[in-house]
Write a protein that binds this DNA or RNA. Structure first.
Lengths: 228, 228
DNA sequence: ATCATATCGTGAAAATAATCACGAATGGGA
DNA sequence: TCCCATTCGTGATTATTTTCACGATATGAT
């Protein structure tokens, strides 16, 4: 049996300085470094140099060294940084090493895909239950989950002390759903609706805005095309 | 019947200065401003002030004014910026006003969800066809599409002069699939695999890295929780 | 054992991004 | 009509992020 309580350190003895607030660029690079290290490890590499990582990240190698220093990963001259330590330490820092419980709201096509997405559990997110306001969807099975009616959401949040919600509802009801969740104790929202949510200052929102990604991609494509 | 050729301006007479390279932060804010303006417009607002947008974006209002200036949107003192013009101009700048053709590779749960996602066409991306290497999936219908075998991908790319690919294949084959696509003329990849792709310098990649988003969300949640 | 070289670590400098401060313009009310 | 409050526009300043420059250190070859 496994502890369910999220957000608690499972003191494993190797905790280092808790690392202060990390800025977005740093966090982004660290997450990518984690992936790179995992891949390198799978390919048998014991170490990675800052130059290797920097090359893949398209930044100066100094910056990678600074990032490593920020989270307390030490390298060795002429060798690099040990992949094992990169992976382990970054999983601590990025919060990937402990499970976090979440509820998923909205089981349309995107929500259903997220429910089936194996990556979540790999990255430490455990969907406690999935909900939909549409009674036609309630009781349907999606992957390992049975869709529950919104009425039951409150008790699940309370029972598991869930603080994170994955929001995949239509744009039209995204804001009101977010308000409802916040009122019921949700402290962090991973928002997949194409709406910029307005929440109290003590609630964290990450907008996974596909429109934005698309805009950025197309903008760059056009720029490149124009250039050559 | 509709023109199919993508990437061509449908000269509508209102083209302004083509706007140089926009940095990522600017692009991000503009995309959000677009959404805000759409919502405000739906609620009947003729204008938005920089202060309103800044408040929703959590930045200084000056910055919003600078962004507007960057893309050539003018406001009026005491009134603000006309929502209609914000929407129209930003759709031009962000490339949302003309259709761009794309192929979608990988029709697993995420790929299928993307195929069904109505937001794409709203934001100017037209999926020409969807492909999967798994013959069990070929000929299945997903939304409005029939999954095609990878063998047919090349001819679709050539026929429609497709430059954009949406990549939703498993991590293990993401890199090789990307290489294959690039070799066949794809110039931009919207990557949903949890892998940092390596591509030639003249190819644009946008990594829609869910693990990264999750890491950022959880990191901030922990920070907040520790603070109060 | 010593040297040459690759790579880390870090303070200084440069580049980029965001905010501040304030003048200019506009619409509404006395 | 003229003033006042509001909001835009933008140069100067500050903060943040990235790169540069260079000394320190460990490994492998002679």
């Amino acid at each position: 049996m496994r502890a369910v309580r999220q957000g608690r350190k499972i003191d494993s003895g190797s905790d280092r300085a808790p690392v202060g607030e990390l800025s977005r660029p740093v966090l982004e690079r660290l997450a990518i470094c984690h992936q790179l290290a995992v891949r390198a490890g799978e390919e048998g590499a014991e170490n990675m140099s800052s130059a290797q990582m920097a090359n893949l990240l398209n930044v100066d190698e100094t910056l990678v060294r600074k990032d490593m220093a920020t989270v307390g990963i030490a390298g060795k001259p002429r060798v690099g940084y040990p992949t094992g330590q990169i992976i382990k330490r970054l999983e601590e820092v990025l919060g990937l090493s402990e499970y976090t419980d979440a509820v998923l709201i909205g089981c349309g096509s995107l929500g259903s895909a997220l429910l089936r997405y194996p990556g979540f559990s790999k990255y430490g997110l455990r969907i406690a239950a999935a909900f939909d306001a549409d009674y036609n969807k309630v009781n349907q099975r999606v992957g390992d989950y049975t869709i529950l009616p919104m009425e039951k959401c409150r008790s699940v949040i309370d029972t598991f002390a869930v603080e994170v919600a994955v929001l995949a509802v239509p744009a039209a009801v995204a804001q009101e759903t977010a308000d409802w969740l916040v009122a019921r104790g949700i402290r962090a929202i991973w928002n997949f609706s194409p709406i910029h949510l307005r929440v109290p200052a003590d609630v964290v929102v990450r907008n996974e805005n596909l429109a934005l990604g698309l805009a950025e991609l197309i903008h760059h494509l056009k720029r490149k095309g124009a250039k050559d």
